[in-house]
Design a protein around this nucleic acid. Structure first.
Lengths: 132, 132, 132, 132
DNA sequence: GTGGTCTAGACCACC
DNA sequence: GTGGTCTAGACCACT
């Protein structure tokens, strides 16, 4: 899978990394049970610090997206993804509301906004299953 | 308008403030041309430093949501809100994609996601015009 | 003469006022010996505070552009404009250098910059001598 | 590069700093991709508060002259300088007109003014590439 | 009284 | 060690 990082963004690298991996799973480029690169190799591949990759992996593990086995490596959680918990719903609301509010301010009507969300949804789910 | 801040959140206070004000405008609790509290009074009202409020106001001004008139105070931009610029679209995509990707991972189908977005849209636009 | 003020600009009103009057003199819309409106009437005409107009007039007087006669009013200096003093040259350099440096940074070549300066020069000196 | 600040000037320190850095770029004393001192070291070097330097850097970043990489430092924008946008042209006019108008008032003819502008242009572009 | 600027000093996130 | 954020408190320019 191709990882794209924007070193100039104000979004922390480890967050971008998490997002990319989550999008990889969502698009089925990464399947449950599939191995991810080791912390070391990924870090050297994308040219970031070990700690940064480690932090991303640790947080993904905490949220249940991946499992980290000492010595054996990192796999996409073979037991399936975490579900829609109340905690997640709150987090999602906190992320979504400001985006929606700004869209309203800027004069985007509901149909247009839904069209955009739908198109991203389709774009992600229809991404080609290429392996990197 | 009632401002709610979460001092424990990792979202900077000035960002929370910006979001609240933008949602206030989106919900028409704040109308174009309406005055916002002065930096100092708002700061003391919500119990933060005046520089924090100042930063939120300055950023909102840069994005075109409000105007800051020297020595007269701060008003919601009476010339209307900023439009849907390419810059904004990129920012919106960067905000939206990770949220959508995580929703997909967690097994939320498209209809459910659109339902949620729509319900927030309605919730914001239909908030009662109460003054605080 | 028509005075245009931008209340949203970060340039102080009194400075804008000074600039407008200086441009009025430069364009010969205001001739040496000609009377300017009183502080009171100008202030009410353009909708600003008395003190603001007063400050602009006082500074213009200090620089030698106008004379203020108690009771009789304010006139464009009939003895002619101030000349090109060393002080003025320093001020001009301080104003000009940053503008030129930024133009260079943005890739504006010398001919283009000179063309722009020349066009403003012409625009000001050729403004119609209308009276307001 | 040598930074000169006038603490007595009514021009804010952060603005003077911005101007100096822009002139440094214009004169090629600072090349795209080159690192600038850290906020803290520059602040202590020139004897101002780190917030003042931070403000200058942040504004320069917003205008596209520099990039701020989290935890890595500040570099002159390696992707090149911002171009000549309509916004910039308006700003430039607002800066230039008053200077030109005053020059006209004081009896400076067009040739003389153009000569001065040209000489500053040459002075900036021909500054020796000395490192400090 | 308003926002703008500056200082001083602290803690945190990131790498 | 880097920038980012927040606090506290001061002075100033402007209206």
């Amino acid at each position: 899978m191709i990882i794209r990082l924007d070193m100039q963004s104000d979004v922390p690298i480890y967050t971008q990394l998490m997002n990319q991996i989550i999008e990889g799973i969502a698009s089925k480029q990464l399947a449950p049970g599939e191995y991810l690169p080791s912390v070391r190799s990924l870090a050297s591949d994308i040219g970031v610090n070990l700690h940064t990759v480690n932090k991303a992996y640790t947080l993904l593990k905490q949220e249940g997206f991946i499992q980290i086995h000492r010595q054996k490596g990192v796999v996409v959680n073979p037991d399936g993804m975490p579900g829609i918990t109340p905690d997640y719903q709150h987090k999602q609301e906190a992320q979504l509301r400001p985006v929606i509010a700004e869209a309203i301010c800027r004069g985007m009507d509901k149909a247009e906004l839904l069209r955009i969300v739908e198109s991203f949804y389709d774009e992600i789910t229809q991404e080609p299953k290429e392996n990197a």
